[in-house]
């Protein structure tokens, strides 16, 4: 528990630096640090699959975010900050924080799972029968590619949509339109 707490505190420090620093590139690097810390935390939480996925996704995130900011002029936000608005915002975020802490009373205590409190939860059924029913020794594999395969299908569909959307947004205007505009200008 103490190790996880230390990792989380490091993540919080990284997040604060990422949000408050003025240089965009260093802020992206700080987000990368937070992501890799989360990967380590997943390893200690008994989730090696998640740690591997997080590593790959984090590398991709860094590349994509750097693509967004490289060769761009450094945008310096010069607008004066309204003190009143900032105070109200911080107060609202604090209210959200306190309300969220109240929710934790309904969670299982740290270090206990839902499986400990109830018999025959879906998780314990998956753990008990996953290997014999699907043949996968890794229960996560059995879950994603066996019991909840439609979940994986939906995930692939979402990523496909995101890539198609990104291509549609980044697409250059077609040459044909340009030619049509030129010919219109000539005609005028």
């Amino acid at each position: 528990m103490s190790l996880l707490a230390v990792l989380l505190v490091l993540m919080i420090i990284g997040a604060i630096i990422a949000i408050e620093t003025t240089n965009l590139l260093s802020s992206i690097v700080c987000v990368g640090a937070v992501g890799f810390l989360i990967s380590i935390a997943f390893l200690f939480m008994g989730a090696p699959d998640l740690a591997i996925t997080q590593l790959v996704v984090e590398a991709l995130c860094l590349i994509i975010l750097i693509r967004a900011t490289i060769n761009r002029d450094l945008t310096s936000v010069t607008g004066d900050r309204e003190f009143f608005g900032l105070t109200v915002t911080v107060a609202m975020v604090l209210v959200c924080l306190i309300a969220g802490v109240k929710v934790f009373e309904d969670f299982p205590a740290f270090g206990q799972t839902v499986m400990d409190r109830m018999a025959d939860t879906p998780s314990s059924v998956y753990l008990a029968h996953g290997t014999e029913q699907t043949g996968a020794r890794n229960v996560i594999t059995a879950l994603i590619l066996g019991y909840r395969n439609y979940d994986a299908l939906g995930q692939v569909a979402v990523i496909f949509c995101a890539v198609i959307g990104a291509l549609a947004i980044l697409r250059r205007p077609a040459k044909k339109d340009q030619k049509a505009k030129d010919s219109e200008a000539d005609a005028v």
Binding site: V57, V114, G130, V139, I140, Q155, V158, I159
Partner: peptide, 16 residues
């Protein structure tokens, strides 16, 4: 073991 169900769902969430 730890609970496998949140891990499977978070794996999907990371990709999304």
């Amino acid at each position: 073991s730890v609970d496998p169900l949140p891990q499977a769902l978070v794996l999907t969430a990371i990709m999304i």
